[in-house]
Nucleic acid binder design. Sequence first.
DNA 1: AATAACTTGCACATCAATGTGCAAGTTATT
DNA 2: AATAACTTGCACATTGATGTGCAAGTTATT
Lengths: 230, 230
Amino acid sequence: MTDTSTSPRRASRPPRAPRRDAAENRVAILDAAISELNHDPDASLETIASAAGLSRRSIYGHFSTRDELVAELNDRGIARVTAALAPIRHSDARIALALVGARLWSEVEDVRVTAQLAIRGPRREIVGKGLEPVRRGVLDLVRQGVEAGQLRTDIEPGTLARLIEGAALSVLDEAVRADISRDEGHRLVMLVALSTAGLSWREAAELIDASPELAPDAQPHASHHAGDTE
Amino acid sequence: MTDTSTSPRRASRPPRAPRRDAAENRVAILDAAISELNHDPDASLETIASAAGLSRRSIYGHFSTRDELVAELNDRGIARVTAALAPIRHSDARIALALVGARLWSEVEDVRVTAQLAIRGPRREIVGKGLEPVRRGVLDLVRQGVEAGQLRTDIEPGTLARLIEGAALSVLDEAVRADISRDEGHRLVMLVALSTAGLSWREAAELIDASPELAPDAQPHASHHAGDTE
DNA sequence: AATAACTTGCACATCAATGTGCAAGTTATT
DNA sequence: AATAACTTGCACATTGATGTGCAAGTTATT
């Protein structure tokens, strides 16, 4: 049990670093949870635990309640999405929008769980709050694009932003259903985002092919900070 | 399921017709269930019952188990969707596709619950089977459109069909989030379906405005009269 | 090797939801 | 008014999941 109580019984006890295997197990739990919740948003701790190769009891050594585990997953998801989308800035809103799709694609699993949580469950309000900045970002892109005459004007920006988001999620769903390859999904999510944004399919393809920053390998991967000596 | 047939069977039980209020209550339960499950896919019978203005206990007078209630909802949903989409036939696949969106829109609530059930829960396989014909129909339309050079060819028909379905559902979600008016939703779902199918937003709008059968008041039953208005 | 950290299995308490039985009320229908 | 249909409240059994306490085992770390 991770003692969170701040009762300074004696001199401050130095919180030691967790054991290596324990740290690994913690990650294993998180990963298993993501994976299992992708299949069934109501997966039990039992299920998650055994998927992580641990006993249910052990989970409580890392997370004091189920909610805490989910919350952590959630924070992680939001953090990843935010990190992935934050640096996107481009003079062409269409490209930026495609980039949003592409970045989401590179985080499929986390994104899906987070998105599910944002829709269902009692936490949906809170999760929604966390995603607020991301949504604002997309909305700003849409506005920028409309302003520049690059995107459709027949749908209100706010609505359009949410629809693009929804369209992208559809691709992620489809990706889980049918096993879609990395590059295929990469292109697909961009195509769909652009289509929803108002481009014809030929325009979308043209734009993607003409923009080197949208190539499947132009993805600046999330920071593996610290070059580990190998 | 519900045997209303007056089979001349004098075994031991003459099956009488249900009392009028009972029949009404049954419908009330179904309606309440739809509504509540739209808010929370895991709504309890307690919640549903009180939303229907009844006690939880009374539900068991109409449905012997929760599953049976859900199954009935499901059948009803599939029936409605099927009925709404079955008569759609048109030489122009784009119009037909828009029509699919429009018809789904007219059944929003039922469609959403059914769609949810098709994704979550242990019944998803069964529900999916029920929707099979509908999906085949959409797929056929997509193929027809591709054949005729009216729809995009950069996405595999099977995938495209599912993406269109997903896009339409996004609109339905959006409709629940923000209160969208009947006509607004009607147009929106068509626009999004066509956009996903590959049209630019201007093409989509043009097509919709030029097709009287896509007008918000074009009624569900009278199938189609030869399109001559151009 | 010694220690503390971690895992595990079991027993147990709790909780929310489902489904039943039954007796007492209401209400539609004849 | 008489009857059967229906609703309701309460008690109760059941089930699945969560969360705890504890003792006994394992394993990383020193």
